[in-house]
Amino acid sequence: MNKVVQMLLVLTSIGIISGGLLAVVSGWADPLIAANQKAATEAAIFRVKPEGKKYEQIKNAGFELYKVMNENDQNSGYALVYQGNGFSGKIRLIAGLSEDLNNISAIEVLDQVETPGLGTKIVEEPFTSQFLKLETSPKIDWVKGEKPDKPNEIQTITGATISSKAVVAILNDGISRLKKLRESGGLK
């Protein structure tokens, strides 16, 4: 009987002490983690919309969407965070769009688990710079192994066609949802 009591006592106290300790640490860390995430999002928004000075989230869009304002407090476009399937997992990216949604200002890949050295090139230049000033209508298209000659085309990465196409598909998906949202007046 004595042994059982001791077992219960020791395990319980270890649990209580651990729990207390973790509560203290997470009380200190949680605001920092939240601040990190907010700072990361903010930095990404201003990287894809360089002329932006302020932003606010559009809450009822159904996906992550930010309205970006320039220095005169006028609407200068949108920053869209969207995700979809890549070659070996989810790709999450942010895209800056002009106010009429017809041009991309820049994109940045936020999270990806593509093949190192191949699919991971979607994060880097020169792939990402192809999206500067890219036209989004009727939709973004891709060409393989040759220089793109239309204003709405990009070239896929050699050896990482699937990842490149995934980025295009995710952008097309997100932008078409955004356009639908505009038609239904959700952007007002």
Binding site: V25, S26, W28, A29, L32, I33, N36, A40
Partner: peptide, 8 residues
């Protein structure tokens, strides 16, 4: 937690 807070 410390790594998430200090070395994201």
């Amino acid at each position: 937690l410390v790594m998430k807070a200090k070395f994201p």
